[in-house]
């Protein structure tokens, strides 16, 4: 137990240290994120009469923040796996009886830092556009609970992708297509109630939709599609299920690696 404490300290220390040493990349990533978000938001705003911008802004902003949770987990954890494998770091960690999983999960530190910084800056842009502060929320605690549930899901999902890249090289763009789809269909950008009737069952089947409903309730007091209590229960179940499957899949992947050896993946 003691030893695990030290391990976790080591991993957190590692990721903060790397964050600092790669500060240019860090700043670049924040900037890149903001710019892409602005392009799409500007595009989407062109569909909406200016009079409705104020009402739209908070929902759009939080949709974007939640999307960032998703895509940063995938990119920072899933994407980094390539580096981790090719540098022989998987073996070096196994030799110390440390599973690669916590080290990969630790990348969420980097991802969340970028998300946080980018979200705040985009919030400023939005405040300018909408003319009112968009960061004032209705119930911060509920927002936090929703975000924690969402983070659990996205990190588990990222680990599943990362496990997959131990076996086959999955290019980043593929990872991102899944992100894109869940942005709209997964109810991140749009309350489920606003989706066309036919699409709602799909959205309900996508795990992210549920914490998203919780977050929107916390932000604006919008009644969740299935009610707050139900959404909390469903989100928890989905989060646990995803975390569990990530665990199982990774265990099997580690077995696979011990059987077949670690291979370098990607463009090599």
């Amino acid at each position: 137990m003691m030893r695990n404490d030290i391990r976790i300290r080591a991993i957190i220390w590692l990721h903060f240290l790397r964050l600092w040493r790669y500060k240019f990349s860090f700043l670049n990533n924040i900037l890149t994120t903001i710019l892409w978000l602005t392009i799409f938001v500007l595009g989407a705003l062109m569909f909406i009469p200016s009079s409705k911008w104020g009402e739209m802004a908070p929902i759009a902003l939080w949709g974007i923040i939640m999307w960032q949770f998703l895509s940063s987990s995938v990119w920072y954890i899933g994407g980094w796996t390539w580096f981790f494998i090719s540098q022989g770091l998987v073996e070096e960690h196994l030799l110390t009886n440390t599973s690669p999983v916590p080290v990969l999960v630790g990348r969420a530190i980097t991802g969340l830092s970028v998300t946080l910084a980018a979200s705040l800056l985009v919030a400023l842009v939005f405040t300018g556009l909408a003319g009112a502060s968009v960061l004032i929320v209705y119930n911060p605690l509920i927002v936090l609970v929703g975000l924690v549930l969402l983070a659990t899901m996205t990190i588990s999902y990222a680990l599943l992708l990362s496990a997959a890249s131990f076996r086959i090289g999955i290019p980043g763009t593929i990872l991102d297509i899944a992100n894109f789809i869940s942005f709209v269909l997964g109810g991140l950008a749009v309350p489920i109630a606003n989706l066309p009737e036919q699409i709602r069952p799909i959205a309900l089947a996508i795990p992210y939709a549920h914490p998203a409903e919780i977050v929107r309730y916390g932000v604006r007091g919008l009644e969740p599609y299935l009610g707050l209590a139900n959404e909390l229960i469903i989100s928890t179940i989905f989060a646990l299920a995803l975390a569990l499957s990530a665990r199982i899949v990774f265990k099997r992947t580690m077995k696979y690696i011990r059987k077949h050896g670690v291979k370098a993946v990607g463009r090599m």
Partner: peptide, 30 residues
Amino acid sequence: WLFFSMLIWPYLMTFLILALGMVYGSLETY
């Protein structure tokens, strides 16, 4: 996979913008 994803991407982007825009606004406005 990269090869095929190159073919899908433009549609995904279009889908994203259209979907976002049309849920709240209209194509006419655009």
